[in-house]
Every structure is written in C-alpha cells, then in structure tokens.
C-alpha cells in the first residue's frame, strides 16, 4: 500500500518534470532527488566560498586602484553567490550550520580548481577568463534546472558572473599587449590554468554514473562532455584574440565534427586533487576554518547585541 503510494507520487513527480513544471520546496519529491540536490547545491556553495581564497590572495597586490576595486567587488560577489546557494540548499531541509560543518570536516567537496595556487597577477586574469568561463558554461543551463529555488539562485549568479569573465579577459588582454615579460606571464598563466579548467566539467560521461538520473530529473540539462566540448570550442577561438595559445598540441579544428578535437585529459591528476592531494587542499581548508573561527567573536557580539536590544524593547513595553 505504502509502496504503491510512493510509486504513484513518483509518477506524478516525473510528469511534472517532463512538463517543465518547476519543483518547489514544499512539493513532494523523491528522497534521492532531495539528496542529490543538497549535495550538488551545497558543493556549489562551498566552491563559491572557497573560491574567494585564491583571489583574495591578490587584493593587496593588485597592480592599480582600479584593479583592486574590481577584484574586491568580484570576491564580494562570490560571497553573495555562496549565500544564494546555501539558502537554496536550506529549503531542502539541511541547516546552514550542518553544511558549514560538512565543509570544514572535509565531508563535503568543493570544486577542485580552487586547490591550485595563484602565483602571478596573470592568474587572476586566467581565473576570470577560464575558470569563470567554465563555471558560466555549467551554470547557464542550471538557470532552467527543475528545482525552483536553485534555478532562481542561478539566474542571479549568471547575471553577475559575466562581469567576472570580462574583467578576467581584460586583464589578460592588457598583459598580452604589454612587454615581453608581461606576455610571458600571460602565456604562463594560461598554461597552468587550461587543463584544470577543462577538468572542471567533471569526469567524462562514461565515468559519471549519476548523469543519466540527473538528466531525467532535469537537474542537469547537458552532460559533462557536451559542456566541456562547448567550452573548448569557445576558448580555442578566444585565445586567438590574445595572440596566445592553449597548451594542447592535439587541439585542432575538426571539420567533420564541427568541433575542436583536443588531447587526453589527465584524470589521474583530477582524482588526486579531488582526493585531497592537490597543491593547496590543506591550505584552503585551513584558511577557511581559521576565517570561521576568527569570526566567532563577531557572531557572538551580534547575538549579544540583538538579545540586549530585544530586552530593552520588552522593558520599554512593560
């Protein structure tokens, strides 16, 4: 009886998805759908928050006041994006504190791209162009994802991301028109960030067992490999404007496919970084935990102040 009821609910649920009707927080949904979303949205939120670290690294060393102001604005946006996403995940029944605990304990993952170091100013440009570019490629289809609060958060995020990508490209463009040393710096950053950015789309479709279900539930709209190909096609053209090259000897336009062919991805590196052995995994998590702990007194003070105001108000009424 109970089982039949659930099957019926699942049929109704899938019908709604197929008709492109969004799912909202209080609607019935399969537990697996809820869990998948909690995992995906919270990971996404963590990535925004941890993503502030490699860039924050360059705020004090940005080469001009204009660059500094822009970078601060961008890092502030990432904090906002983290908040939109945490809020969306909370509508699924997980608390903010629980998500933060999962991040700090290492139980929850964040995008492995942020475990690479930002060695030069050109890295900030490469992050904007490539890392944010890859993120946008992933995120634009998510504006139509089946879960309402997630889709709405993504609309807001995508609007803001395009400034991020443009400012990054502009940094590289300026360097690419500069001295020989600046040009070399630009190419070096592209060399280091290209492959990790290509890996941002996740394992190839054959190695991604959840993709089929996520597509059926319309959480995902395109597979990892589809998005990756789109990204490569676009970047292979854009890099020409910079008069630089992508570090892939196999990159070649394939007339028959109508796409760029590209070389093999080092999946071993990908899994190593995800597994915690990237260049900066420990440093990022330690910085994140320290920031949280150092902020404890601020949270306590805000609570104490709110409690005091509440009491004052009560006394005034009495």
């Amino acid at each position: 009886m109970e089982k039949n009821g659930t099957i019926q609910l699942e049929t109704i649920f899938q019908d709604r998805i197929d008709q492109e009707i969004r799912i909202e927080p209080k609607d019935w949904m399969p537990d697996k759908y809820r869990q998948t979303l909690i995992r995906q949205i919270s990971q996404h939120a963590h990535s925004e928050i941890v993503g502030m670290l490699p860039e924050g690294n360059w705020i004090t060393r940005a080469p001009s006041l204009k660059r500094k102001a822009t970078l601060i604005a961008k890092v502030q946006d990432e904090a906002g994006h983290g908040l939109y996403l945490y809020s969306a995940a909370e509508t699924l029944g997980i608390s903010r504190a629980e998500m933060i605990n999962q991040l700090h304990s290492g139980k929850a993952k964040y995008s492995s791209i942020f475990n690479y170091p930002t060695l030069t100013w050109a890295d900030i440009g490469a992050i904007g162009w490539l890392v944010d570019g890859a993120a946008i490629m992933n995120q634009v289809p998510l504006c139509r994802t089946s879960y309402g609060p997630y889709a709405r958060a993504m609309v807001r995020i995508c609007k803001e991301e395009s400034f991020h990508q443009r400012q990054g490209f502009e940094i590289l463009l300026t360097l690419s028109r500069g001295t020989d040393a600046q040009k070399a710096m630009c190419q070096d950053a592209i060399n280091r960030w290209w492959w990790p950015s290509v890996m941002m789309f996740g394992p190839s479709d054959e190695a991604s067992p959840h993709t089929a279900q996520s597509m059926r539930w319309k959480i995902k709209r395109f597979t990892n490999d589809e998005l990756r190909q789109k990204f490569v096609d676009i970047c292979a053209e854009q890099v020409k404007i910079l008069e630089m090259h992508l570090p892939d000897p196999d990159l070649k336009w394939n007339e028959k496919r109508g796409h760029y062919d590209f070389g093999p991805i080092n999946w071993d590196e990908f899994w190593q970084v995800i597994g915690g052995n990237g260049p900066c995994n420990k440093e990022r998590l330690a910085a994140r935990i320290k920031a949280h702990e150092d902020g404890a007194w601020v949270r306590e003070a805000a609570s104490a102040f709110a409690a005091k105001q509440q009491q004052k108000q009560k006394a005034a009424v009495a």
Binding site: K26, W28, E90, G93, A97, I100, E300, S303, A307
Partner: peptide, 22 residues
C-alpha cells in the same frame, strides 16, 4: 526557507550563535 516540508521548525526565534545553531 529554513526546513524541508517534513521537518518542523523550532519555535523559538532564538538568537543562536554557536556553531551548531544558526
């Protein structure tokens, strides 16, 4: 916002700040 449809919300608006509560 705070909780999913099956869970009930804690009544007190509370002014929690410790790491376990929001």
């Amino acid at each position: 916002g705070d909780y999913g449809d099956r869970e009930s919300v804690k009544e007190s608006s509370g002014i929690a700040a410790d790491s376990a509560r929001d």
